[in-house]
Design a protein around this nucleic acid. Structure first.
Lengths: 217, 217
DNA sequence: AGGAGATCGATTATCGATGGTCAAGTCTCC
DNA sequence: GGAGACTTGACCATCGATAATCGATCTCCT
């Protein structure tokens, strides 16, 4: 998973994804294939591929002959995604803890980078290191399907959307990871799992509270 | 999710998927775009789209300029998928049980169809009804992302692969669903969840036992 | 003989153009 | 004045052809 191809379609996909995440492309906005093709000095084919891939990442949605538009990422969907993430990470941590004990260094570095970003109020950096922390745990479970499933939830983008919306106290959020790390340090998978689950689930309330179920197709 | 488009690319995708599931296309076999295009009396473009979609369904894998081939679905991956399925369905059942109590009819019909297929030794039918039973539960959780995640695991195909490999006692497998149904009937989400999880996890041992980690890219 | 490098065939990635489809606006006829 | 058929524009789905890339084979020099 995750080789850096350099086809045109991949480049287009990356750029469009970045724009959607950055809010440059508003939800509901249309993505017209030929217009994008012109911008990238390319033809329609690579654009179509890129759009289809973005569709599987759930960043856009398209209807036959009706075109593609940026997906509305409602708070409800956000809460649902965190609920799924919660159970996945719990399961991952339960099996990953022993494996992680052997290589705590990487995880510790993540945690430190996380804290540094939090202090610097660097949202993008915080998001990146945060994701890396969690992803390492999922990866260490040794279950590739679990990792792919976790990746497919697209938290790469969700976290940044959430931070942009709610602007929470990064330093406080960073601290929450300490007990998780300690549980892993102690090789206590079940506790680490439970903490991770609670960590993820604590965001569900935040999301549900702010907006009453934005319906998305 | 799941409108029946009638583009050429969708038709191609369906046919190819059916062939892969049915074993007509062996794992590792190459899928050459132009050859398929000729067969369907079409051009390369729709074939490409179909292949890319099959790739996200993990039925095939492709490398740039190297082509696409049918994915090797190893026993290890199978076991991993069932492990993920286990936690997803557990989580689903816990919240879905109350909602399902209101409409037990559909679930009961699934169960009956399931048993009928088992008695008739109809593997395809068993797979279909079995999946429908489980999917209804996930659907009833009300969490769309959870449902999408579950769908993305591709058990539509996995179950049939597994049945083809191991040819288990369908009648016995069908019976296992009874206590799950009863727990739901009683509105006992946690119990239903636990049973579902154990149900899924019971397959992991089967898979791990038969083949020592078939590596897939 | 043996290996670095050129060449070739096969296949993918991309191109520019065309045919179909949808939605909105226009025109007709009542 | 209004409902429905017709036209129009914009756009997607597909096409046939071309460029780019890969793996393997072949060549030539030592």
């Amino acid at each position: 998973m995750g080789f850096e191809r350099d086809c045109m379609s991949d480049r287009i996909r990356r750029v469009l994804a970045e724009r959607i995440i950055g809010g440059e492309l508003a939800p509901g906005e249309r993505l017209v294939e030929m217009r994008i093709a012109e911008e990238f000095k390319t033809s329609q084919a690579p654009v179509r591929e890129a759009l289809r891939e973005l569709e599987t990442l759930r960043l856009v949605e398209s209807e036959p002959y009706r075109g593609t538009r940026v997906r509305e990422v409602g708070e409800r969907e956000m809460a649902e995604a965190y609920a799924v993430r919660a159970v996945l990470e719990q399961a991952a941590a339960e099996t990953a803890a022993p494996a992680l004990k052997g290589d705590l260094g990487g995880l510790r570095r993540c945690l430190e980078a996380l804290r540094a970003s939090a202090l610097a109020e660097d949202q993008a950096g915080y998001a990146r290191h945060n994701l890396e922390f969690h992803r390492r745990i999922v990866e260490a479970s040794g279950n590739r399907i679990l990792l792919q499933t976790w990746d497919a939830l697209g938290f790469e983008t969700r976290v940044r959307i959430r931070l942009a919306r709610h602007e929470p106290d990064l330093a406080h959020l960073a601290d929450i990871h300490d007990p998780i790390f300690e549980a892993i340090e102690a090789g206590d998978g079940p506790t680490a799992g439970r903490l991770l689950r609670e960590h993820a689930e604590s965001f569900i309330a935040v999301h549900s509270a702010s907006s009453p179920a934005t319906e998305g197709a």
